[in-house]
Design a binder for these strands. Sequence first.
DNA 1: ATCTTATGGTCTATATATGAACCAAATGTA
DNA 2: TACATTTGGTTCATATATAGACCATAAGAT
Lengths: 112, 112
Amino acid sequence: MPKSITRTYSRYSREATLLLGELIRVARKERKLTAQEVADRAGISRGLLQRIEKGDLKCEIGVVFEVAVIVGVKLFDADETTLTRHIRQTEDKLSLLPKSVRRKSKAVHDDF
Amino acid sequence: MPKSITRTYSRYSREATLLLGELIRVARKERKLTAQEVADRAGISRGLLQRIEKGDLKCEIGVVFEVAVIVGVKLFDADETTLTRHIRQTEDKLSLLPKSVRRKSKAVHDDF
DNA sequence: ATCTTATGGTCTATATATGAACCAAATGTA
DNA sequence: TACATTTGGTTCATATATAGACCATAAGAT
């Protein structure tokens, strides 16, 4: 048996993922879509959709987001346009920050 | 070369992931944290962190969320407590919906 | 009650994401 | 300018997520 890499997750991450999954399941049922239908539209297997809806932490973020879009769950509470605007704003902000984080090499009085 | 599975993503998914990645990078720099430092705290490689910050769609959602937490980016604009409350509310909602989606087998006048 | 179908769970093979060790370039500091 | 280090980009081996085929049960129509 190969040595496996076990990750640790904070409660916050676990709950955020769980909430997203549950929101997806609710949205899917409200729209009366079968698990198989949504899976087909997303181009994934039904099994993977189940894991997503159960809040499995080890799913590609792209697939999870895609499923969310399909059933109508908004990310960031934002529509397409708002999302794009936020990206621009964030990139502006980023351009003002130093490009690399410089650590005071030898703790003169390192932070606190 | 084995046949690869190429997924398609909507613009919305791509931008949501990109935005999240950029928010993480901004937050990291604002807190003056090195990529290596954050990677270590998250228990991932620096390379993976770079992909996350670039908005790579094929990263585990759990890892992405975990990194977000580490640098202080809130998911769902909600703190721990609010998140938990939302979960309860969503589960209540879910319990009221039919447990399986029933499709009218032979389109009597299928929906619209 | 019966029948159809949606859901949840296994298992296996395979595609693929990840870690690690590189290197080169860019960046900020003294 | 020179120097230390952060960052971005490779490549490769390996751990692992996913698809797909199952099966059993649950759920909701008729």
